[in-house]
Amino acid sequence: MGLAESQDRYAGSPRGRPRSEAVERSIIEGVMRLLEEGLPLGEVSIERVARTAGVGKATIYRRWSGKDALFVDVLRAAEPPDAELPGTSMREDLIVILEQMRRRGLASRNSLILHNVYAQMKSSPKVWDAYHATVIEPRRLVAFEVLRRGQRNGELREDIDIELLNDMFVGPMLVRAILRPDAELPENLAERIVDALLAGLSHAKP
């Protein structure tokens, strides 16, 4: 989902209003500047964003329904963009999905904005709920479909719970990227995780 699409889902105004990508970008960069200056997420108000970006509050509300929706797009802009899945095999798609998680983990370690916002989201339920509904859950659904397609194509056993299986794939990467910030995230980590699990989950060979 692109920036404009994400904003359209949460904008409070009717569809069809002319939009300025430059204005939207200046608003998002205004929020990033405030966060870089160390302002806590809870203190970033629409009024303050408007002053920083040099726009009126109405300009922001025409594009976002409120602060929570704006923060979600700020996070999306700061994170590495989601890659398009090759669709050639379940294995290749899973590797791409986990590789994106690895890159987001690296970005969080190297980006003060991402690190601070991820940490502060835990105490901002509305922001977390909006981020989960618009970013995390769609990614989960994509992974579910990849696994279901693998079952239909015979790449994966059909007696395995898809939700549990998805957790088994993403769990090791989440542990390395989030729970163990000192752990290495080598370039081949996604491939190693996928191949290790598929070795025991694919159809048994005669």
Rank of each mutant, 00 (worst) to 15 (best):
A78Y: 08
A78W: 11
P80G: 00
E155M: 07
A78G: 02
A190C: 02
G12M: 12
P172G: 05
P14R: 13
P80A: 04
E184M: 11
Q7I: 15
I95F: 03
S65Q: 13
V194M: 05
D73I: 08
L70S: 02
S124I: 06
G30I: 04
E187C: 08
L39D: 03
G12L: 14
D195K: 11
R76A: 07
Q7D: 09
L41P: 02
R180K: 12
G171S: 00
A69H: 10
R9G: 07
P172M: 05
F71S: 01
L197C: 05
S111R: 08
V194L: 04
V135A: 10
D195E: 15
L174F: 14
R104C: 03
A50F: 03
V72Y: 00
V146W: 05
N116K: 15
D129E: 15
A183D: 11
L70Q: 03
I28T: 04
E43P: 12
R140Y: 11
D82Q: 12
M90N: 02
K126C: 10
L3Y: 13
K57Y: 05
P125K: 00
R176W: 09
I27L: 06
N110F: 11
E5C: 08
G105P: 04
W64H: 14
G171P: 04
A133W: 09
I95L: 01
E79L: 15
T52F: 08
E158W: 11
M168T: 14
V49W: 01
I46Y: 03
I95N: 07
M32Y: 12
M173V: 07
L39H: 08
E163Y: 10
Q120I: 10
A107M: 06
I60F: 02
D8H: 13
R33Q: 13
L174S: 13
G56S: 07
V96W: 03
D195N: 12
G42F: 01
I46P: 13
S202N: 08
I27M: 10
P138T: 01
S124V: 11
A190P: 03
W64K: 02
S124D: 15
L106H: 11
N110K: 14
V55F: 01
N153E: 15
E43Y: 06
D68S: 13
S6P: 02
M101V: 10
A177R: 09
R19N: 05
A78T: 05
M121V: 09
A69L: 09
P14K: 06
R25Q: 15
R102E: 00
D73M: 13
M90P: 02
P14G: 00
G154H: 03
G2Q: 07
R51V: 12
Q7T: 11
R9H: 12
D73N: 12
T134D: 13
A58Q: 09
L198T: 03
L156M: 00
L75S: 04
I97Y: 02
A50R: 00
R152Y: 07
E184N: 07
A53Y: 00
T59V: 07
I95C: 00
L75W: 01
